[in-house]
Nucleic acid binder design. Structure first.
Lengths: 154, 154
DNA sequence: CGTAATTAAATTGTGCACAATTTATTTTTT
DNA sequence: AAAAAATAAATTGTGCACAATTTAATTACG
């Protein structure tokens, strides 16, 4: 009895979901690098700022929950954003364990300059608007699924 | 004259393609960590091995082309794979600049153990099979687009 | 033919990511 | 209330990722 001839099909790059996901994410971050550099942000700093622009002051923990990042990543990123003058870091009054992250005036004003950053993808990602919406919806759905898993497993 | 009320809509996390892409990719790599650790690979080492399993011996440059990685990333990864005994690194005979990467017997045998790694996503990503196929196709299409851009810009 | 331009790896330096541990604070349990 | 458990940041250590530079080899050009 010979084994199935395509037993190893699952290990081909083209049959994997993980690889285009991984590579595509990196490409997008790479494409964002230049416009972000112009306004003085790295990609990780940019998504932190986006959360603060949208939701306002919150703790490092809450920020990490929205961005899927832990303190090991966020602590140094937030210290740099503080040094750049875009955020304030201060201990919460009602719970000294928590760190409250809020925007400075410079941080608030940066929002205006960031408006054209997402356009960097135009002409790089060759998808129709509908395809883009579908892709975004599927990614968000997949992300939700992993969230449930995180909550179960810690 | 007041400005449009939703001028900043584009900067909301939920309206971005980049964020779910970035977060989803990280989650998948995180989910793969455990099964990969059992067979002695990191995620980056895993995708290198997948290319070698599928296409056989090739140069570091060719490997980088398939994986969207440059020598700055690949050189140390390949040295570790060599130290682990899964690949051989040797200068090409016809071009001493190129490094030829080939599988050892251990590297070939590892393929069998890697067969169940992709299953780690089952139950974590809550997408139907059709949705997964759509997602993969859109990601591959987007990735192709950025490839054209890379070739233009260097 | 010999020099200039190109190319492939390697190296250097910066910035994440994340697991694991530590420290400080708060909450829960006896 | 005191000890134990839980929680939030910070720290430590490893491994990418990538821009920029360097080194060595090859190709192109005058």
């Amino acid at each position: 009895m010979s084994e199935s001839p395509d037993k190893f099909e699952v290990l081909k790059l083209g049959n994997q979901l993980c690889f285009p996901l991984y590579a595509c994410a990196k490409e997008v971050v790479r494409i964002y690098r230049e416009p972000l550099e112009e306004i003085g942000l790295t990609y990780t700093q940019y998504i932190v700022m986006m959360v603060l622009w949208e939701f306002g002051t919150m703790t490092e923990k809450e920020l990490g929950g929205k961005l899927y990042l832990d303190s090991g990543t966020l602590t140094p990123v937030l210290k740099k954003l503080e040094k750049s003058g875009f955020v304030k870091r201060q201990r919460s009054e009602k719970d000294e364990r928590s760190l409250s992250i809020s925007l400075t005036n410079d941080g608030i004003n940066l929002k205006e300059k960031a408006l054209n950053v997402p356009q960097a993808l135009d002409g790089c990602i060759h998808l129709s608007y509908d395809e883009m919406l579908t892709l975004r919806a599927l990614l968000n759905k997949a992300l939700e699924g992993t969230k449930k898993r995180r909550e179960r497993n810690g």
